[in-house]
Simulated assay, not measured.
Amino acid sequence: MFSPEGPRLRELAVQALSSVERGYDLLAPKFDHTPFRTPDSVLDATASALWRAGPFGSGLDLCCGTGAGVDVLRQVCEETVTAVDFSAGMLDVARARTRPAGPPVTWVRADARALPFGPVFDLVVSFGAFGHFLPRELPGLFAQVHSVLRPGGRFVFPVVAPPRPGSLTHGMLLGFDAAMRVRNAVRRPPFVMYYRAVRFGDWERALTRSGFLVEYWALPEFGWRRDGSPRVRLVVARRPEA
Results as ranks from 00 to 15, higher is better:
residue 5 E to P: 01
residue 7 P to N: 07
residue 10 R to L: 15
residue 13 A to L: 15
residue 14 V to T: 14
residue 15 Q to A: 15
residue 15 Q to T: 13
residue 22 R to V: 13
residue 24 Y to Q: 02
residue 25 D to Q: 03
residue 25 D to R: 00
residue 25 D to W: 02
residue 26 L to G: 05
residue 27 L to R: 05
residue 27 L to F: 13
residue 28 A to E: 00
residue 28 A to C: 07
residue 30 K to I: 07
residue 32 D to G: 07
residue 33 H to F: 14
residue 34 T to N: 05
residue 37 R to P: 03
residue 38 T to G: 00
residue 44 D to L: 14
residue 44 D to C: 04
residue 44 D to H: 08
residue 47 A to I: 03
residue 47 A to Y: 03
residue 48 S to M: 03
residue 50 L to P: 04
residue 51 W to I: 10
residue 52 R to N: 11
residue 55 P to K: 04
residue 61 D to L: 10
residue 61 D to G: 08
residue 61 D to Q: 10
residue 62 L to Q: 03
residue 63 C to A: 15
residue 65 G to I: 02
residue 65 G to H: 03
residue 66 T to L: 14
residue 67 G to P: 04
residue 67 G to F: 04
residue 68 A to I: 12
residue 68 A to M: 02
residue 69 G to K: 11
residue 76 V to L: 06
residue 83 A to T: 09
residue 83 A to V: 08
residue 84 V to M: 06
residue 84 V to Q: 01
residue 86 F to A: 00
residue 89 G to A: 06
residue 96 A to G: 12
residue 97 R to D: 08
residue 97 R to L: 10
residue 99 R to T: 07
residue 100 P to S: 13
residue 103 P to V: 04
residue 104 P to F: 07
residue 106 T to V: 14
residue 108 V to Y: 07
residue 108 V to C: 13
residue 109 R to G: 15
residue 110 A to S: 15
residue 110 A to R: 13
residue 112 A to I: 13
residue 112 A to H: 01
residue 113 R to W: 00
residue 114 A to R: 11
residue 115 L to F: 04
residue 116 P to N: 05
residue 116 P to D: 01
residue 120 V to Y: 01
residue 126 S to F: 10
residue 129 A to N: 00
residue 131 G to P: 05
residue 133 F to P: 12
residue 134 L to S: 08
residue 135 P to N: 08
residue 140 G to R: 03
residue 141 L to I: 12
residue 143 A to R: 15
residue 143 A to P: 01
residue 145 V to A: 08
residue 146 H to Q: 14
residue 146 H to D: 12
residue 149 L to H: 03
residue 151 P to D: 06
residue 153 G to H: 04
residue 153 G to Y: 07
residue 156 V to S: 05
residue 156 V to H: 01
residue 159 V to E: 12
residue 161 A to V: 00
residue 161 A to H: 13
residue 163 P to F: 03
residue 164 R to C: 12
residue 165 P to M: 10
residue 166 G to C: 11
residue 167 S to I: 02
residue 167 S to A: 05
residue 171 G to E: 09
residue 172 M to F: 12
residue 173 L to W: 11
residue 174 L to V: 13
residue 174 L to K: 14
residue 178 A to E: 12
residue 179 A to M: 15
residue 184 N to D: 15
residue 188 R to W: 13
residue 190 P to K: 09
residue 191 F to T: 01
residue 193 M to F: 15
residue 196 R to H: 01
residue 198 V to T: 08
residue 199 R to M: 11
residue 200 F to H: 14
residue 201 G to V: 10
residue 202 D to H: 14
residue 203 W to Q: 01
residue 205 R to T: 02
residue 205 R to C: 02
residue 206 A to V: 00
residue 212 F to H: 12
residue 212 F to T: 08
residue 213 L to V: 14
residue 213 L to A: 14
residue 215 E to V: 02
residue 216 Y to G: 04
residue 216 Y to K: 15
residue 217 W to I: 10
residue 217 W to Y: 04
residue 218 A to W: 01
residue 219 L to D: 00
residue 224 W to Y: 08
residue 224 W to F: 13
residue 225 R to V: 00
residue 226 R to E: 15
residue 227 D to H: 05
residue 227 D to S: 03
residue 228 G to T: 09
residue 228 G to N: 15
residue 229 S to F: 06
residue 230 P to W: 09
residue 232 V to W: 02
residue 233 R to T: 02
residue 233 R to P: 02
residue 233 R to D: 00
residue 238 R to P: 04
residue 241 E to I: 06
residue 242 A to K: 13
